[in-house]
Amino acid sequence: MFLKRRRTRVKGWQSTFSGMTGLWLIAPFLLVAGVLIVYPFVELLRTAFGAPNGFGNVGDFFASPAARRTLWVTCVTSLIVTAIVVVIGAVLAWSLRTTRSRLTRVVIALAVFLPLWMGAVMKIYAFTVLLERFGVVNGTLTSLGLIDEPIQMLNTTFAVVAGMTYQMLPYAVLPLLAVYVTIDLNLVLAAESMGASRVRALRDVVVPLALPGLMASTVIVYVICIGYYLTPVLLGGATAPFSASLIADDIFNLFQPQQAAVSSVLLLIVAGLVILAGLRLVGKERMRRALG
């Protein structure tokens, strides 16, 4: 009687996962995304466009002067902050890229990254101390004889813009610095050797190469700005109402979740349009490289 040996097939090692294995690996992420992102988004749309008026709820929102003003103030103030932040961030990022002084680099880095290490309440309280009626700024201006009496700075749009600008600087400097590092400084020197001034060399050489980073910074800063809540409430008060504060009032004070949902959807639409505009202007691939 001959015994037949069973030949066992040893499965060879594969460098790639099978489709089922990959599905099991991403299953926890899909579950979390479904519970924390997809389901809330669907509920938001259902609440915003539900009974009694459906899509007419948007018309009801724009029929309210307070709601229109809040959305307008949110978009315009965020645009102002974004412009200031991107300009200052571009200068600071370029200084970090080109300076040879270690002390200058450390000072700029601390000024840029310190807001990231501080809590939001601490930063707002610092600006309250600076801008209050008898605060540091008014005291300095009075002692220098530039003003005769303290100026009202708190509860103004200026205070909101200043506070948001300080907090948003890192979000402009980091993408721009990542782009500047890839730019060969010899290109600027070559342009200057051909007769271009420093300003023209930066305008004609650096700005076109840094355009994806500039657009990425603009998109990031603006999208974050339109969702601000604490800074407009504590530094601006009623003079600078933001959509986030209107949403909070609709939910907790006025008990109008539908109105809050419509405001939230409009903010999402604005953010989506800004992102699409950025992708349209510089392209998806260049935007992705700028964001790292």
Rank of each mutant, 00 (worst) to 15 (best):
K11Y: 02
V91R: 00
F134I: 03
V219N: 07
T140V: 14
L45V: 03
G278C: 08
P212A: 10
A248K: 12
S193Y: 04
T82C: 06
V76C: 04
P115R: 01
V270M: 06
L189Q: 14
F2L: 12
I108T: 08
L144R: 08
W72Y: 13
T156E: 06
R133E: 09
A90K: 02
G283K: 08
P150Q: 02
R6V: 15
T239K: 06
V136L: 15
G213V: 10
T165K: 12
G56R: 07
T82G: 01
R7E: 15
I88G: 01
V112M: 09
G56F: 07
S15G: 15
F62R: 12
V91P: 00
V270G: 05
L103D: 07
L141Q: 07
M194K: 04
L174F: 08
L131E: 05
M287F: 14
M194E: 10
E192M: 15
L202I: 14
L23G: 15
G236I: 06
P65D: 13
I26P: 03
M164N: 08
L25T: 15
I183P: 05
N53L: 05
R203Q: 14
L211I: 06
P257G: 13
G163L: 04
P212V: 11
F61M: 07
M118L: 11
T77V: 15
M194T: 11
I251S: 08
F255Q: 12
A83F: 14
M168P: 03
G145T: 11
E285I: 01
I151V: 15
P208M: 04
